[in-house]
Amino acid sequence: MRRRIVLVTLLGVFIGITIWITQMDTLRYMHPKTYGDLARQTWNHIKMVGIAELLAIGVGVPLGVLVTRPGLKKFATPVIGTANVGQTIPSLAVVAIMAPILGYRFESAIIALFVYSLLPVLRNSFTGINDIDPAIIESAKGMGMSRLQIALKIELPLALPIIMAGIRTSTVICVGTATLAVLIGGEGLGKIILAGLYTQIPLLILQGAAPTAALAVILDTLLGGFESWMTPRGLKKS
């Protein structure tokens, strides 16, 4: 209940600020962005995050699962180690480094986001499966389940909530990194924030910042709800 009050209040504040500024006649020497601008950049933001995230899931989940398989386990340490080191590197560094390599363009932004989103997905997919109690697999084998049955009926359902948590973390980070990706040719709400920063108009910054914050909180809440919906009842804490 309290959580809901906190959530609704925060979202109310963010959205309220956005509406308040958008209604203004002028911000110092220019007009505020219109609702149309906001909607377009929000859509761009979601599009960038969505594309990058789908790529990250498409690559990260299979790769994370693959390195848990007996024959490929020797690749687990280098792959997961790289992912861990990668997550230590600041997002701005990852984004910025794409400019000299790929140039200033939309695709560079997507690739930067994809690389940075990949790491949590990859790591959680690996640990989600790797941390399953061996006794559970053992008893499944003992009951005569085939490899495939174990993978589909035991490993996947048990690992799914953890993989989902990785996707959620990754998405939230991605929303933040997307604001930086506009520096190398991306689109989205970061454009408004940066325009405000360059022109030194705090209210313009706020007009971009408030909806970005709202977007991050909404996506996190939605994915959090999805995550708990996917968690088998037996795994939920009472």
Binding site: G176, I193, P202, I205, L206, A209, A210
Partner: peptide, 28 residues
């Protein structure tokens, strides 16, 4: 326990707000 839940939840939301947006909110 209830205070803890609220405080931790708030701190969790804090983390989801992109840093550039947080700077933007802090400035005004």
């Amino acid at each position: 326990e209830e205070i803890a839940d609220t405080v931790l939840y708030l701190a969790g939301i804090m983390m989801t707000i992109p840093s550039l947006a947080l700077f933007g909110l802090l400035m005004p």
